[in-house]
Simulated assay, not measured.
Amino acid sequence: MKILAIAGSNSETSINKQLVSYAASLVENAEIETVDMNEFEMPIYKHQREVESGVPQEAKNFAAKIDAADVIFISLAEHNGTYSTAFKNVFDWTSRIKDRAVWNEKPMLLMATATGARGGLGVLEAATKRFPLHGGNIVETFTLPFFNDNFDKSTHKIANDEKDSELKEKIQKISALESILEK
């Protein structure tokens, strides 16, 4: 199974990158590619810019990574209740590729984490509503509140046993897709 692990943040110390990396590591025998949003930095989307220059190659490269994956694990950073600007810009540009649904119906584990009590719930709710309109096949969702208390940075694992068990159950459902994907 090929997993594309995406952290919806351009932070060098992204807690969402830590979470998505941990989640992907739970799938046995998976080939994992972790995406860095900084690799897809491009001008802020503007219709006139698209008309004049077309869709940037970085957006096409992002779409190619989606297409090469069997499953997408994504953990979104929450900035003021919604997507980070870095993620939103890549999402916007990728949505402009002709005849393309951004997520291409790939099975997806949609996650978020934050240092507060809601654990990125605002961005998770926004994505849960929006992604299916762009070919998002959301199989499971997961939030991890109070990241600094619930994630052990020294072991790179969830320290809260209840939340860790919850994530592992959701990963099992995703892993069960492997036999379907191989057909």
Rank of each mutant, 00 (worst) to 15 (best):
E78A: 05
E78Y: 01
Q57D: 13
K65D: 10
F87N: 00
G81S: 08
K88T: 00
G81L: 04
G81Y: 04
A63G: 09
R96E: 10
Y83H: 08
A59M: 09
T94W: 06
R96Y: 08
A86W: 02
N80Q: 08
A77D: 07
V51P: 13
V90H: 02
E50P: 04
R49T: 15
E52I: 06
H47N: 14
A68C: 05
D67Y: 02
I97M: 12
D92L: 01
Q48V: 07
E52C: 12
A64N: 14
W93K: 01
E58Q: 12
V55L: 09
Y83T: 00
E58M: 09
D70M: 08
I74V: 06
I97N: 12
F91T: 11
A68V: 01
T82L: 03
E58F: 05
K60Y: 12
A64E: 15
V51W: 05
R96V: 14
D92I: 00
K65H: 07
H79M: 00
K46W: 05
A69P: 10
A64R: 07
I44C: 07
S84R: 05
E50L: 10
F73N: 00
H47W: 02
T85A: 15
A63V: 09
A68H: 05
H79A: 01
W93I: 13
P43C: 09
E78S: 06
E50V: 09
